[in-house]
Each structure stands twice: as structure tokens, then as C-alpha cells.
Amino acid sequence: MSLTQAITLNEDGSLYRKFSDWSDRSEKKGKTIFKAIEAYTGKNGFDFGIGYDFIYKITDRYHFVPSVEDLYWLELDVFDREKMQGFIRDILGKITWSKNVPDYDYALFDCPPSFTLLSYSILSVCDLILIPVNPDFYAVKGVPLILNTLQLRIEPFPIPKIAVFMNKAKPYAGSMTKESQFYWSQVQRVCSQAASRAGLNVKCLDAPIYDRVAIKRAVTSGGVPAEFVSDFKNLWKGITDFLYE
């Protein structure tokens, strides 16, 4: 499930009425992220106004730019790769200077594991890359791969800070199971190698998100289940501490 689906779907799988009405209006006005990319890479200059027809208000404090189906075909459209690199920087600039929306503290981007033009643009401008790792061999095997690919793709531009944390850690007696601990120790070793061999600024955050059944209720109950509050607070503290180091 994509982040957009998680945020905008009812428990029966239908779109929230409020979101679906907003989404219809947004598409009719041509105020989607895809249209923004088209405008940015087009020949007429980046004329794209920012407002609440582009940004959806989930709550007063959390605002959201949803994905659209057109983005699935982004790679097939002929956009200039070099030009696309600056897209996120420029759209963030427009959002920052817009008087129609408030000043935001943080912008979070949910990226796929694969590299797309859009994730390339995000990685070129972001301050921190946050990588969740599940406690299994193949997920851990992905860590050196992604670290390597990140470096190859982003260079010669500066590589942002990289934070890794364990997601879906198996809980046992107030901590992780030995198996999860083993995989976490391997992640730490790989990150330490990446730091020393490639000079990456990688930090392993000791703030696991545990695998609990309650996470499945997070979407339908409209909030973070109580069992997860301290997990996410710890993670957020680790992220901000690293960000401002």
C-alpha cells in the first residue's frame, strides 16, 4: 500500500469523501504533482501557483501532496533528467515563499526503493535519507546495495546524511528477539563499513519500530495506536538529533 492510499482510503477500501472531492477539484484545476513536473520541465517556465488545491490538509498540522496515477508512468515520459534534478528544490522554494500555505517545519518524502526521476530529484536536495530495514536477510542485504547506489547516483553532488532504523523488529521481553538483534548488528557493521570505506555519513538509530498487530489499526482508527507512540517518539528524536548534529 502506498502512503497516499494509507492516508486517503477508508477501511472498506474506498476513498475518504473529503479527499475524493478535493482530489477531483485538484485534478480538474491541473494542480497535481505530475502537472507540476510537466510545468517545470516544459518550455514556458515554471508557472505553477501553490495553494490548498495542490496541498491537501490532513489536519491543521499535517499537510500532504498526494501521489497520482500518472506518476507510475513518469519514467516512460521524456523528461530531461538533469532538469528534473532541480524540481523538488524549486517546488519547495515555491511552497516556502507562498503566502497561501503556512511555513512548514519539515518536508517528508516517501520514496520507492527503486530510483525514479522524482526520487533522484528528492535525494539531490534532502538533508537526510531515512532507510527502514526489516529484520531478515534479504532486507539487510539491501542496505549495502542501496548505500552503494545512493553514492553512485548522487555523486558528484554531496550525499545527504543517511539514517537507518529497524522496522518491524520482533519484540521479546521489552527488547528485540535475538534474531532481530543479530540482523541489526549486521546492519550496524555494514553501515560502519560504508562510513569508513566510502566516507558516507551513516548513522544507525537505536529506535526500532516493533512489529505489533496494532499497526494494522493505524489507518482505520485514524491515528498512531498507543503502543507505538513511544517507538515513534524515540525514532523522531533520533532523526532530529542526527539532523542537527
Binding site: 536477510f137 548505500l147 552503494n148 553512485l152 543479530f182 563499513q193 570505506r197 566510502a198
Partner: peptide, 17 residues
């Protein structure tokens, strides 16, 4: 088994493209 897994989990810096 764990030793074999650990041996496969290495960061090898690849050359720049």
C-alpha cells in the same frame, strides 16, 4: 548459517560510473 549470512553482508565501494 549465520556466519555465511554475515559473509554476504558486506559493503564494497563500487567504482564511480
Amino acid at each position: 548459517k549465520r556466519v555465511q549470512e554475515a559473509m554476504q553482508l558486506q559493503f564494497e565501494k563500487k567504482r564511480n560510473l
